[in-house]
Design a protein around this nucleic acid. Structure first.
Lengths: 321, 321
DNA sequence: CATAGGTGTGTAATCGATTAACTTCTGCGC
DNA sequence: GCGCAGAAGTTAATCGATTACACACCTATG
């Protein structure tokens, strides 16, 4: 920057003003400075700027698994929305581990992100408190924690789950397997509670860890237990469960009815296509980014609750109804 | 930091020395400083540190599409490897657009990443030159550009493609559709060249843009053209092509043989399971990160060329052979 | 007992920007 | 011709770290 100033025969202050579109400089001076910048191929150092202004124009996003298309889609949406407001997004992969999550959150805070979007790995509120204590704007996404005091953006699947339960029971299933998420995540618990509530006594619940492998294991257990329908609470576990069903040569929906929470582009391609509860991932990501930006600008955004929708495709024997 | 120094009754220099595990401080001083840090909940400002040291301990990764599981997996691997060496990764989403790619690259450079990993959207070398001119370590991943002078990490599918071609021709197909990537990407061209070369005159090539929609359109065109086999050069286009095949009620492999470049976890679940050429994504990501770190440390890593493997599953009528 | 050599700390310059406060210059009114 | 307002630009402090150099103190040595 000093070089540019020298080259243009002005002071660094003037260069800075030109760069930031500030009040003062004469059109003529401005030209000279821009020419010098061009000629020297100068690019301002974002670190120095941020240090001075205490604003990095960056949001942090900590998710539990980049490989899960659900989170990938959310990340993409967050990024789009952020970019359209001049912000960058730094993504952190917690790998469903509370420790890694904490590590990432601290790293991001150390780098002075202007705000943080978090999909908490567990419902333990201590990390959230730590962030809030540091005064950094925080929005929770997809999952919440106990006694959260910050805005939360999530999808509400109650209606869809209830409708699904009604359908399964109506179709005569009297032993229905539920592959749930970890009981220490809000989504793991809430979805399961709603579904088992709606199913009455016919539900058999096994908890997985939101990963493919746990899906197949849980499916194996439930099938051995004689269930005639399987509802899986996450797409990766759904993938695992499907594998197990295939491996055993069971026919969907004849031998077993099947449904998954969270849609995937390839679900319609299976035979039969998979019935799902689809979450509005893009809207969730955008809404979360918007809430965070509002928070950064000193506003107090409300919680956002979007509704997930039941999409009937055939894997629960809809044709037969 | 000044507060910590005051609190511990030492100078900021000493605090810094304790923080960085430097030679000097007495165990006793060290204790006092650590206690003060603890008490005040002090965390060093990474921006200031980076400004001073000109090292951010951060790698930039610019990929063309986070929603493509292929890139998501690579990103994940890069991140793992980087983290294990104490580096963070900032991911940028170019959306298969050269402009956005350039924007992201510049943003990352402005933030002074220590090195850059790039999956170039086109084979135009100007952006690569720009980065190199800035003296920032750069490694290309998955794709290369014309006259690249930096290390490149990619998967070689020649053998697999040749084997696949032999199989299809051997099975009697005389009109084989190829859905290729954009001709201005190195992978788009090279894979297609190898395959069409091995197929002789029976290939019908349509170029897509690595997105689902273009896959269905290309498939429609080729099927109308009467092909009896379809090879798709990327998993997203493969998804689109599959959709088109299903929509037309065609049976794989009876009515049409089908294969995809790049494996996906759900391909084995289809009926029949999809024959693919599997790329070693995780190894690609790790290797790229390692090459970049080597470059940062002043070494001169070689290009890395991993081999993609043909996985026969049935969608090309393997059972009948 | 002066002197050299080590140790542990402190002082202050530095990284590259932003910006408050100040200087200079121009033009205008009386 | 003097004073003064307002515009254009400069000087220098600042953000929060790192680190070269200086300094004080201590011990071993000739």
């Amino acid at each position: 920057m000093k070089d540019v100033a020298l080259h243009a025969g002005v002071s660094t202050a003037t260069v800075s003003r030109v760069l930031n579109g500030h009040a003062a400089p004469t059109p003529e001076t401005r030209e000279r400075v821009l020419a010098a910048i061009e000629e020297l191929g100068y690019r301002p150092n974002a670190l120095a700027r941020s240090l001075r202004t205490t604003s990095t124009q960056t949001l942090g996003l900590v998710i539990s698994d980049l490989l899960n298309p659900f989170f990938a889609e959310i990340a993409r949406a967050v990024e789009d929305e952020a970019r359209s407001h001049g912000y960058c997004v730094v993504i952190g992969n917690a790998d469903e581990s509370a420790e890694q999550e904490a590590t990432y959150v601290r790293t991001l805070l150390d780098r002075r992100v202007d705000g943080l979007l978090l999909c908490p790995a567990t419902d333990d509120p201590s990390l959230v408190r730590e962030v809030s204590a540091g005064g950094v704007p925080l929005v929770l996404l997809d999952r919440t924690v106990r006694g959260a005091t910050c805005p939360v953006v999530r999808a509400d699947g109650s209606e869809a789950l209830t409708a699904l339960a009604r359908r399964l029971v109506g179709a005569g299933h009297s032993r229905i397997g539920v592959i749930a998420g970890p009981p220490d995540t809000s989504t793991g618990r809430e979805r399961t509670d709603v579904l088992t509530g709606a199913l009455g006594g016919v539900a058999r619940v096994v908890h997985g860890d939101f990963r493919q492998e746990s899906g197949s294991q849980a499916a194996a257990k439930l099938i051995d237990d004689g269930v005639t329908a399987l509802v899986v609470m996450d797409n990766l576990m759904g993938l695992g469960a499907l594998g197990e069903i295939r491996a055993r040569g069971l026919q969907i929906p004849h031998d077993i009815a099947f449904a998954v929470f969270d849609d995937q582009p390839w679900f319609p391609l299976l035979d039969p296509p998979i019935t799902v509860i689809a979450q509005p991932t893009v809207e969730m990501g955008r809404a979360a980014a918007r809430s965070l930006l509002a928070l950064i600008n000193g506003q107090q955004p409300d919680d956002v609750r979007l509704t997930a929708k039941l999409v009937l495709r055939g894997s629960c024997g809809e044709a037969e109804l």
